[in-house]
Design a protein around this nucleic acid. Structure first.
Lengths: 208, 208
DNA sequence: AATTTATGATACAATGTGTATTGTATTTAG
DNA sequence: CTAAATACAATACACATTGTATCATAAATT
């Protein structure tokens, strides 16, 4: 009935489909790639695709998760060394983009881009949210966990996307630092203000 | 051969197709809408669609201009009255989403959303950048204009999108205020820190 | 080594795409 | 106001894509 995800054949087949899909995405774009194309490229039967994924979108989401794991793994190695400076997880991200940044060009592709950005932002936000919950208590924070996390994540991913689309006009080291710094210290500091004079709004009851 | 864009029949037909497409987008989503659906909804023949647009995406791009005009019109009316308080453009945006702003739900639609988000973020960033350039000089700012502007814009639009997709768990007044405050004052303030202890990185030479 | 099961090959109905043709209705231009 | 120009509707067609089903074979698990 259900598929055994730890079966070697399944692991191999799914990896083949993911890698084939990414190759085709970069080559032809999301809409132009058919299920048959993916199966052929992966040297698999088209039926096999449907055994693992409902549609292209589901495969794309799976691809994103795998890509993110790679980023997370990569950034974890570095963050252990330099976590004190705070800049490192984002730096690893930017360096990866500049390196084999093929995958990240998908961020700005019109069809797959939204799902990629959305999922990536979710994953980054979740990571930030967990870190916040570890370090701070609910009463201590002057804004809800989820809002802070998503605000930071949106700025980071959005700025990275801007950087990709604008031919990377600054070095990755600077981008990671300024991105991190702006989120933490606030834009007012970039204006030369010592401290933004207004306090945070009172947190309302969460609805739903 | 080529189509006369000023012909009354052409203007009427294309408007009908756009409006029908937006209705169907809100109802069924981008992928679920076929060319035939659009034609039927617009009370036109399917062949007529192909006489004006190559595919769905081309129609969507044509629609975005119309959609953005609606957004800009609404936020402009309010911003002239209350721009002094600083919160109002964002507040108007959130209120518009919560009100009859069905159109904004397209932001989170998987295909149409990316084009909309991208365009909207660009426009907001441009608006912020202009304001910065009016108030500050290049030497005065501790980070480049474009980076600050896009950092803020990404956070604002991204957070608004999160709010839409998560069933609007907080009132629009709070969202606009906290969104604005986090960008200006910085997340560190939300952690309870008086001032983020690290200074901004040195601005490098702009490449390209 | 025996059993389980993921895969490949093949087939099929249903839907969508893009183009061509011809007569009709509407707009434009003289 | 009339005639020429042309956008539109109706219909048809070839083709691609999707999603599902069946059964034999190959591979992995136990």
């Amino acid at each position: 009935m259900s598929i055994n995800q730890s079966d070697l054949r399944v692991i191999k087949t799914k990896r083949g489909l993911r890698e084939a899909f990414i190759r085709l995405l970069l080559e032809k774009g999301y809409d132009a790639v058919s299920i048959q194309d993916i199966a052929t490229e992966a040297e698999a039967a088209r039926v096999t695709f449907y055994r693992h994924y409902k549609n292209k979108e589901e495969l794309l989401v799976d691809c994103i998760d795998v890509i993110y794991e790679d980023i997370a793994k990569h950034s974890k190695q570095v963050s252990n060394e330099e976590v004190q400076q705070g800049f490192s997880p984002t730096l690893a991200f930017y360096q990866q983009i500049q390196g084999d940044g093929e995958i990240y060009r998908l961020l700005s592709s019109s069809q797959a881009g939204h799902l990629l950005m959305k999922r990536l932002t979710e994953l980054v936000a979740e990571r930030i949210r967990v870190q916040l919950e570890v370090r701070f208590s609910t009463e201590q924070l002057l804004a809800p966990f989820d809002i802070i996390a998503f605000h930071i994540a949106s700025a980071q991913i959005g700025l990275a996307n801007w950087w990709i689309e604008n031919a990377q006009p600054y070095p990755p080291e600077y981008m990671s630092q300024i991105s991190f710094w702006l989120s933490l210290a606030g834009s007012a500091r970039a204006f030369g203000l010592e401290k933004f004079p207004i306090g945070p709004p009172e947190i309302p009851e969460k609805m739903g």
